[in-house]
Design a protein around this nucleic acid. Structure first.
Lengths: 225, 225
DNA sequence: GACTGTGAAACTGTTCACAGCA
DNA sequence: TGCTGTGAACAGTTTCACAGTC
C-alpha cells in the first residue's frame, strides 16, 4: 500500500477525515490531491516531527518490579529510546544484569548522566526516595522526568515532569463501569431519578466504542486530593 | 481545615477558580456562599461521583514484572480496588504468593471471574497472549479491560478497553525535549528558519510549569502506526 | 464582606463544504 | 474524477463578571 487517503486513515484511527487532514496540514502539505498521502514519506515526516528519528538515552532509577518491567519493555527501542543505564540504591543489585544491562549503584548517578549526555530520567523508586533522586537527576543535567512514584515532585523551572499513576486508568474504567450500572438501573425504573443539578451532568461522554483505546478526556479534570 | 474556597483549590490544582466552580456545579451545589466548600463533604461527594466509594474486585492476568508491580502497587486499595486474583499461564507460578496473594493458573480464569463477580480485568501478559486472555475475560463476564500488552484488542460492543503504553509518556517528554533544543537553536540564529507551513505549528503548548504533572493534551491526537 | 453559582462573552477546537490541483 | 488543503460555520469549553446568599 504505497499511498493512503485521509478517509482510510481516519477510519483506522476512529476520527473524522477533515480533522485528520487539518491536523496533518499543520505539519506541512505532505499529501497529493487526487491521490492521498505517500505512506513512507508521511511516516517519516510525522516521526521526525515527534522526535522519533532521534536517539534518546534514558536512565531508569529504581530497579524493582516496575523498573525491571520498564527495562524489559520492547517498545522503547522502536521509538528511539535507548536505556543508557539502570540505577538502584541497593548495593546487592549492583552488577546484576536486568534486560541484559548491568545495574549500577546510585553513587554513579551523576557520572552516568554526564558521560551519556542523558536528558531524560525515569523514576521507579519507592515514594520516599523519589524527590531526592529527582533532585540529583536535575542537578546532573536531566531536564525531563517520568515519575512512576506516587509523589508529586518539585522541580525548578525548565524541567518537565510527567507523573504516571497506574491506578488512574483503572479508576476511569470503574467510572464508566459505574455509569453502565447506573444506566441499566435508570432504564429499569421507567423515569429515572433526576440528577441533582444541571442536565448536562450526564453529558455525551459515551465512548465511541470504535478503535478508541487511548487515554483521553473522559473524566472531569479535577480530582480529589 | 474544615472548609476550602474555590480560589485555594484552584491554586492547588493549577486551574482557575471559575472553572473549578463550574465543574463542581455540575455535581450539584455543594458549596456555601461566603464560606466555601466543606472539605469532608466535598471529598465524599466527588468520591461517590467517581465511584471511589464502591469496592471493585479486579483480576490481574500475566504475573511477570509488570503484573507483580501492579499487584504490589499500594494505590489500588485506597481507590476502592481489591485485587481478587492473580492469574498466570505458567504452571510453575501457581501457588506462589505475589504481594501476599497466591498466583492461580489460567485454567481457573472463568471460575474466578464468576465467583468473585469481577467486572474489571487487567492484562499484563505478552502481546501474543493478550487477545486470547481478553476473549476469555469477556466471555466470563468482564466488561472493562485495562490492557498493558502492546496490542490493540478487539472486543464486542459494550466492553471498554483502555490501552496503556508505557512508552507514550516518554515520547511526550522527548517531544518537549526536542522543542526545547529547537527553541534554543532558533534563539541563537536571530531570525529562525520558518516552519514549513502554518505559523501555529509551533503553538502555545508550553507547559504551565505549575503543578501540572498529569497526562493531558500536549501532543497531536494522531500518531503514526 | 466573602464566596458560590451561573448566564453571557470570549475563545478554542471540530466539522462542513468546496475551490484547487494531480 | 478523486482527494487534499483550508476558509467559514458550528460546537464546545473556558473565563468573566456579577447577582445571590451566608
Amino acid at each position: 500500500m504505497p499511498t493512503v487517503s485521509s478517509e482510510e486513515l481516519a477510519a483506522a484511527a476512529g476520527v473524522n477525515s477533515a480533522k485528520l487532514r487539518k491536523d496533518f496540514s499543520y505539519l506541512g502539505s505532505y499529501g497529493t490531491r487526487g491521490v492521498g498521502y505517500d505512506v513512507e514519506y508521511l511516516v517519516y515526516q510525522i516521526s521526525r516531527e515527534l522526535g522519533l528519528t532521534q536517539d534518546w538515552p534514558v536512565v531508569i532509577v529504581g530497579i524493582g518490579n516496575l523498573g525491571a518491567a520498564l527495562a524489559n519493555y520492547g517498545g522503547f527501542a522502536s521509538r528511539g529510546f535507548r536505556v543508557a543505564a539502570l540505577i538502584d540504591a541497593d548495593p546487592s543489585m549492583a552488577g546484576k544484569p536486568v534486560a541484559g544491562i548491568p545495574v549500577q549503584h546510585s553513587d554513579e548517578l551523576e557520572s552516568i548522566i554526564r558521560e551519556n549526555g542523558v536528558h531524560i530520567g525515569v523514576i521507579a523508586t519507592p515514594a520516599g526516595a523519589a524527590q531526592e533522586v529527582c533532585d540529583r537527576l536535575v542537578a546532573a543535567g536531566v531536564t525531563s522526568i517520568l515519575n512512576f512514584a506516587p509523589t508529586v515532585l518539585s522541580v525548578p523551572d525548565g524541567v518537565d515532569v510527567r507523573k504516571v499513576d497506574l491506578s488512574i486508568e483503572l479508576q476511569i474504567l470503574a467510572f464508566h463501569e459505574q455509569r453502565k450500572a447506573g444506566e441499566e438501573a435508570a432504564a429499569r425504573t421507567a423515569a429515572g431519578v433526576p440528577a441533582p443539578a444541571a442536565t448536562n451532568a450526564t453529558d455525551g461522554a459515551e465512548r465511541t466504542s470504535a478503535t478508541d483505546q487511548g487515554p483521553d478526556g473522559d473524566v472531569p479534570a479535577v480530582m480529589p486530593a
